[in-house]
Structures are given as C-alpha cells and as structure tokens.
C-alpha cells in the first residue's frame, strides 16, 4: 500500500513538471470551415487581442470598427494581432463571412458556433476582450463604450 501511495505521489509530481498555457483546448472554425484549436494561439510570441463578438451585437461592432480604424497605425508602434471570435449561433453564423467583407475588417475571424469558447473562458456577455501574452490572459474587459479602444492600446504598450 505504501508503495502504491508513493508511486501515485511521484506520478502526480512528475506530471506537473510540464509547462502549459492557460488557454482552453477548444475547437473553433475558420471562415472556410477548417478546425483550429484555440490553445494553439498561446504558443506564439506576438501579443494577442481576442475579441468575442456577434453580428447582432451593436457595441461589439462599434468596438471592432474603432480598433480596425487604428489597426495598421497601432501595429507599427507595437506588433500585435487581433482574433475576432464570433459567437453567432446557427441563426446568424452564415452572415459572418459576408458581414465581415462589408466591414472591410483586417482581423482573423473565427466561429464559436455553440459557445464552447465563450463557456470555457467564462464570459457572460459580449463584447469581451482579452489581451493574451505567451499563453496567459494578462488583461480583459467586458462591454464596450466609445474610447475603450484607447484603454486597450494603452494596455498593450505597458504589457
């Protein structure tokens, strides 16, 4: 029995020595239908902004428009990438691709059709933005009012 315990303890300690990132292992779809695992974005050194949004959410669209207007300019200051993850369900998910074209957004767009990522990140309402650095969530903000993008860009500089 003692041996068993020892083995278990050793095993448990051993399994912990592996590092990992904090991003949940959730499958998203790209606009062409390919599966992408959300935690694969954690391996990247570039600062990441993840915005959860929906085509029916007016403040979400305002936020992405506001970021989009300054996107290229801000990227010159500090390299970062924005992933816009739509939580549109099958009522509106088909609208996402043409909608994004009609907005001219330069972001990478992904689909979370049955809210798996929304649940895994424990988000109550959209819009909700995260800043992710080396697989760790370093900042988040719920809701959008005009000017929140300024706060987001300021945070990026300090992180």
């Amino acid at each position: 029995m003692k041996k068993t315990t020892l083995i278990i303890v050793t095993f448990l300690i051993a399994t912990m020595s592996f590092g990992q990132n904090d991003l949940p292992d959730i499958k998203l779809r790209s606009l062409t239908g390919d599966e992408v695992r959300f935690n694969s974005f954690g391996n990247n050194d570039t600062l990441l902004i993840v915005s959860l949004w929906a085509t029916w959410c007016v403040p979400c669209i305002q936020e992405l428009e506001a970021i989009s207007e300054q996107y290229e300019e801000r990227q010159k200051e500090i390299p970062f990438k924005l992933l816009a993850v739509s939580i549109d369900d099958s009522r509106t998910t088909q609208r996402v691709k043409p909608f994004v074209k009609g907005k001219g957004w330069p972001f990478e767009i992904y689909l979370d059709v049955n809210s798996d990522l929304k649940r895994a990140l424990n988000i109550n309402d959209v819009p909700h933005v995260f800043i992710i650095k080396k697989g760790k969530i370093v900042y988040q903000h719920n809701g959008y009012v005009a000017g929140n993008e300024e706060e987001l860009f300021e945070k990026i500089k300090t992180l």
């Binding site: 003692k2 315990t5 278990i8 303890v9 448990l12 300690i13 912990m16 590092g19 904090d22 424990n122």
Partner: peptide
C-alpha cells in the same frame, strides 16, 4: 500520507502555476 501527498501537489500546482482555474 496520501492526503499529504495530494495537498503538496495542489500546493505545487498553485506555486508553479500549473493548472488553471476560472469562473
């Protein structure tokens, strides 16, 4: 011993930032 071992583990998890808690 087992409980102690597990607690140590939980403690180490928190220390080394292994495992992730959210809500």
């Amino acid at each position: 011993l087992l409980v102690f071992g597990l607690l140590t583990n939980v403690f180490i998890i928190a220390q080394t930032d292994n495992g992730h808690f959210s809500g």
